[in-house]
Structures are given as C-alpha cells and as structure tokens.
Design a protein around this nucleic acid. Structure first.
Lengths: 225, 225
DNA sequence: CTAGTATTCAAACGTTCGTTTGAGGCGATT
DNA sequence: AATCGCCTCAAACGAACGTTTGAATACTAG
C-alpha cells in the first residue's frame, strides 16, 4: 500500500520547492547551486536528486506546482464570463481582466511563495535555457489558445495577424511588470505602499492594455496587410 | 608611445565581442563558457582574460559597445524634435517613436550583430544577476531621465505616478518584443517575412503604446491617487 | 639588426558544479 | 521481534568552470 497521495505531505519535498522558488527568483536557475539550496532548506544535498531526479526536473516541478492551477483558473474565469454573457461576445476589457488577474493575485501573497513565483515566471518568459522555454510554452499553450479565441470574438473587426502582435505586446507588458524588481529605478517615483497593491495594478494594467488593444491602425500597417 | 586607440582595431578583441554577443543571446551569460566562446571565435582561451580582464568585464564591454551610442542617439533624436518644435510641447506619439526606433533599427542588421545585441538587451532587463542589472540601469539612466521629462511635457495633464507606471509598461512591451525569440508560439500566426520588418513593427508598437499611454484613468486609480 | 613590448599559446591551477554511492535510521507490516 | 520499503546522511565522483602561468611568437621602434 502506502500510496504517495495518502501519506501526509512530505516536509522535505515542499520545503525544497519553496526554497527553490525563492532562490530561482533571486539568483536564476544557473545561479542557484544545489548546495546553497539544500542548506537553506535544511535538507540533505542528495534530497533533490532523490525526490525529483535532477535539478532540471526540480525546475519543472516548481513551475508545474503553480502554473497548472493558475492557467486552469484563467480558463475557468473565461468560461464563467462567457456563460454569463449567454452567447454574446465579451467586452475586450473583461477578457483582459481575466487574463491579468490570476497573475496579479499572487503578488499579494506575501507570506506564501506566490509573489516569488509570479516574479520568477515573469523573468522566465525570456529565459535563454531552451528546454525551460519549451516547458513554459507547453504549460501555457491551452490557456493561450483559449484567450486568443476569446479576443478574436471580442474584437471581430481586427485582422488576425494584427491581433497576434497585440497579444504579444500584452504578454510582454504583463511579464515585465511581474518580473520588475526594485532595480527598476522608474518605480522609485511611486508610493512604496502601492507597489504591490494588486487591485490598483490590475486597474492600471487593464486601462493600459485595453487602450493598446483597441488602438487604431497606423497607415503603413494597413497598407502592408 | 603606442596608444591603444591609435592602433588598428584588434581582430581578436572584436571577434571576441561579436561571438560573445551571439552566444550570450543564445545561451545566457552563465550558459556561455569561455571555452566554447573562445573556440568559436578562433582565439586562445586566455585571450578573454588578457584583453578584458575577466568574464564579467567582457559582459560589460559587450553592453557598452552598443548601448552608449544607442542611448546617445535617443537623446539626439529628442533634442532635434524639440528644437524643431520651437518651444511647443511634443506630441506623445513622436516621443514614443523616438524611444522605439533606435532599438528597432538594430533588428534589421542581419549581418552585423545588431539584431543579436538587441535581443540580448531585451532579455537582460530581467536578468537575475545583480551587478549586470545595476550596470544596465546606469547605462540607461541618462536617456531615461530625458524621456521622462519629454513625456511629462507632452502629457501635462497626467499625474506623475501614473506616468511612471505607464512608462514602466512601455518599457516592458518594448523589452519583451525585442527579446522574443522563435519560441513564442504566438508569432506563428504571422507572416515570416514580417517578423523583422522594423518599420512595420515600429508602427505597430507605436500605435499600441500611444493608445496605452493616453488611456483614460480607471475609477479605482483616480480614487486612490 | 636588435631590444623591447604586445600578443598568443598549451598547460595547469584550484574551485565549484550536479550527481552518485552505500551505509544507516525510521516506521509500518507480519 | 524480524523484515521490508522509504527516506536521510556524509562522503566521494568526474566533469566543467573561470582564471593564471610562463614560455613562445609577432610586431614595432631605435
């Protein structure tokens, strides 16, 4: 007997995941050695290879733990919105909000590693390590397809390739905002207590992204298309 | 005698910088070893330490070589625009274009390492390595201050902290667009020949960013400010 | 041509990395 | 009490890393 799931959650596994999340965010994947990670987690050096198999597998586990639920929530929010709209097309504004919120909500999770993870995620969109990028792409694919379809319905007049670019821009804005650390001197201008106010940030982001998404086409783009 | 600058440009130095630019973009800083770098450049392993002092100093040199002229051009474009406007405030649209263009123009440089560098730069905005982030911040600081002032004049009605956030969003969109590699499945939807058309991209980005920058304020943001 | 400096080279240095090993401890089952 | 599977532990492994060394070579100035 003794199925893995029946047993009480393992302290070691969870502690490794938590510390990995934090250190990967602070130092990057290559900058985080298994020795400092296991020391900080209070576990033996060999524990990572025992529980996860390898460092790469640990990285994957860190992402899967949070990303799968997060994208499931994204899809669920869209489903609910569309059920609520009873067949009518959604407002672009609402779609964007459903995209932005599941990410930002983690920013308020100061105690748990939610904030750590979301900043790590923002950084990883531009990760040089190929297998990691591929993994992230795979984990995101279902939710991305869903959003693309929803935006195509919400913006029927927009050309497909133009929409693809604008989704790309949206994605970038969100990723960069999430990844932003105290190093961004820009932020120095704003009140410290507002920096992690998810609701304020959600409104600011949504306003910016909605306007960008609805922007009129410029001359040369219309001409070339 | 024999001042460094008088001598003909060194093949070794330049070749190291070029290959470093390319490999740093493909594999990241930590993922690029001095051995593969020097082998690919066709120089001796010790050449990097002889010419630059250390790997970190090489990284810094890679950025300085392109970033200093690029930001100088950004400031020059703004100066010219403002001289042309003869005291009147600039259009936000024009300021954004002056910000976006010097980056995008490198994308068309297929032969030289310009495209490599600009994609490397986009990735580095979210670099975990602290000293590198600090360096980038320093190299960018003068141009950033200049743009902030220009945008404050172009958008006098906007509150300061709101503008700071929107500049932040702008920055993120540009960085992510530049850093985007073929891994972004989103782009799969667009015509391959358009992917590095700088003019098309400049128009698309400017349209998106201008609309975002001029977006009306949402309720909760106005209330909180 | 020669002296002296600037550069290149193969080899090695010490360190750190991710991973593996095999012995030992713990708890549940029979 | 004996056994078996899960887990932890200290120690070691080989490989790869950035850097250093000292001799060999190329180049330049007098």
């Amino acid at each position: 007997m003794s199925l893995r799931a029946v047993k009480p959650p393992h302290g070691t596994r969870t502690r490794i995941l938590d510390v990995a999340e934090e250190l990967f965010m602070q130092l990057g994947f290559e900058g985080t050695s298994m020795r400092v990670l296991t020391t900080k987690a209070g576990v033996n050096l060999a524990a990572v290879n025992y529980h996860f198999g390898s460092k790469d597998a640990l990285i994957e586990a860190v992402f899967r733990r949070r990303l799968d639920p997060m994208n499931a929530q994204r899809i669920k929010e869209l489903d609910e919105l569309e059920a609520q709209a009873k067949g009518k097309a959604l407002e672009p504004d609402a779609v964007i909000r459903a995209f932005v919120r599941p990410g930002l909500s983690h920013l308020e999770d100061t105690k748990g590693g939610g904030r750590n993870f979301i900043r790590l995620l923002g950084r990883t969109y531009t990760e040089p390590n190929k297998p990691i990028r591929v993994l992230i792409g795979q984990l995101y694919a279902p939710a991305m397809e869903r959003y693309k379809k929803a935006l195509e319905r919400a913006l029927p007049q927009m050309q497909r390739d133009e929409l693809v670019w604008r989704m790309h821009f949206m994605f970038g804005t969100l990723a960069y905002t999430l990844a932003a650390t105290d190093t961004v001197q820009l932020i120095a201008g704003c009140k410290p207590e507002d920096r992690y106010d998810a609701r304020l940030l959600e409104d600011r982001l949504t306003a910016f992204l909605t306007a960008g998404l609805n922007a009129p086409l410029k001359q040369s783009v219309r001409k070339a298309a």
